[in-house]
Write a protein that binds this DNA or RNA. Structure first.
Lengths: 341, 341
DNA sequence: GCATGCACGCAAAACGATGTGGAAACGGAT
DNA sequence: ATCCGTTTCCACATCGTTTTGCGTGCATGC
């Protein structure tokens, strides 16, 4: 008893060759029904599982995909993950969610991720350094970007219509008489923050309304960021009548801080967010926000990756998909000031 | 130009043998400083990354660990993940978060996970079927269970002192005069639900107080579960003065449904949760709950796994760590009924 | 000057799969 | 019976590492 292991053991108990077992497994070549049955019986009997290392060594594929997010405790990202999994699992891929811990943690984690040779990587990262971009590009790994273009040759991306959503938000603020608007963005000058602010400006421009130029501060996409943002804004002036935040977590943090300062929401100042995470409907007052179709973003990204992985070609042109967003008006912006002209 | 790839290419440009390169990489054998320097230079020049498949093929290790959770959109789990990552990343392990989608999704995902041959698996799963338990056990993979014992030989587990937390909660309810208490648990008869309920009963027993035997219903650990739970409870009787929920999501769902029925919280009925997720402080009224040290659970679990993986022995006895919990009293249980005796 | 011991490197054998070129077996047509 | 085309299976090379067991060359102790 030579105690073979792996596929060799299966081959032995089935009384066939190693390659035949492999054929049965992969279906790459036809195998007679009788042999196939014997092989399958042997596999079941031994409880055999192919070794993924050996397999990927030959096939250069791992059948697994990574989702790299800046902060898994932001409830937006788990939804994206679930969306991706909706599509990937049925296709036989395993999705690994990797948490960079923060925007700046990306670089550290990227090394680990590339080493693992995932077949594809979905990135929801705002500030990608040039060095990291280069590492990604010549790793040859398929990349799909979420939320913004990542600037890598041949990598598709899917985003939400941030500008459109904020334009609708702008109209709404306008209609309720808000004029002195502060904006709290996420990590330094990140594209999403700018895009969102742009939509807002555009709405005011379209209405030809005078617009006390939105003061903007950049912090981080967290509750703490929201608190800091409010402090920074009120250090400049204290007559804001609306504070627009680049995501819901910031908005919730901002509300904490505004309340601490004795301001009433929405009577003194309106607050709005972005994403429409569950908590947006739970806070008091409930938060006006723009719905960001997280799960659909995940699904779409996964489909883009699968398409690229299947037709293993760089042939197809880069795809860029924009999902529409929806304004969700709640209490944090509604009640006041229908006057002024 | 034979165009070697991988370690062989590195060996060639450094002018050493393949094994020497491997030695430099792993540090398993001493290498002279001069050679080490040349090898490292070659590695940098070629941008070489070891192939993880080939590596794991020989070494039988993947340096990656999986965390399997029932529902990644429950904010409790991302915190656990972050805690694990705190410990694992510095140790050179990559953590993959895998979402089973639901308690029942576990089995489906488990196959995928075992195929991938992670070095270790952290499981936060309540109802593990016997078949799955068997698969896990004879996969030989190191397993650490979170929240409860998983019943696998040699697998450690870390849990929170659920019963203790609920005992404190019980005293609190008692002190505020609550007597007719309903309990909404998670997935059918799951251990955590029972444990938590047990702590509650114990507190009442200790006080020698008459206790309208807690009616219990089991649904799922989600907001929807909370709504269903309230419906089920009120189908039995309608004079509850407190509803204790097995986690915060259930509690939040329950509050939605109670409010829909025109009941006032906490005046008509008190509501409590478990976990102390962010949302617990955000809902209105803010939710009394028991703090579950998610991040610390993650850290502890990771340490247990690492210990097992390092001293590759089944020698050490099974470890069982209980983390203490803390009652967090907020508005959802406080105001009313300090009378009666 | 000769055995002895160290420090370094190397060659070669795994590890467990995939996949290609052929060989054997089998029929059907001539 | 011979020939030819299919079908079905196998041997073998290959993927990129890790890991032993051995050579070297050099300083050391006598």
């Amino acid at each position: 008893m030579t105690q073979k292991s792996g596929i060799a053991a299966v081959a032995e108990t089935a009384g066939v060759s190693v390659s035949t077992v492999s054929q049965v497994l992969s279906g790459n070549r036809p195998v007679s029904d009788a042999t196939r049955a014997r092989v399958n019986a042997a596999i079941a009997e031994l409880g055999y599982t192919p070794h993924p290392g050996a397999r990927s060594l030959r096939s250069r594929r791992t059948e697994s995909i990574a989702l790299l997010v800046p902060d898994i405790t932001n409830p937006f990202y788990p939804l994206v993950a679930v969306g991706m999994q909706d599509v990937l699992l049925p296709a036989g891929y395993l999705l690994s969610i990797l948490d960079a811990g923060s925007q700046s943690g990306t670089g550290r984690l990227l090394g680990h991720v590339l080493e693992r040779r995932f077949d594809g990587i979905a990135l929801h990262i705002d500030g990608l350094s040039d060095a990291d971009r280069a590492r990604l590009a010549d790793s040859g790994t398929r990349v799909v970007a979420l939320g913004r273009d990542i600037g890598i040759e041949g990598s598709d991306y899917v985003e939400s219509d941030d500008a459109g959503g904020f334009a609708k938000l702008g109209e709404h603020l306008l209609a309720t008489g808000r004029r002195r608007i502060g904006f709290i963005g996420g990590e330094a000058e990140s594209d999403p923050s700018r895009l969102r602010l742009g939509g807002l400006r555009q709405a005011f421009a379209a209405a030809g309304t005078e617009f006390a130029d939105a003061a903007t501060v950049f912090t981080s996409f967290t509750r703490d960021g929201g608190r800091d943002g409010v402090e920074a804004l009120y250090a400049r002036r204290d007559d804001w009548d609306a504070i627009v935040c680049a995501n819901d977590l910031i908005a919730i943090g901002a509300m904490d801080e505004l309340r601490r300062r004795g301001l009433s929401i929405p009577d003194d100042v309106a607050v709005s967010g972005y994403d429409d995470i569950d908590a947006a409907a739970l806070v008091h007052p409930s938060l006006t926000t723009v719905e960001n179709p997280a799960r659909e973003i995940g699904r779409t990204a996964a489909r883009l990756l699968l398409t690229r992985l299947a037709g293993d070609g760089d042939d197809a042109p880069t795809q860029h998909i924009t999902l529409s967003t929806r304004l969700v008006v709640r209490d944090s912006t509604t009640s006041p000031i229908p006057q002024e002209r």
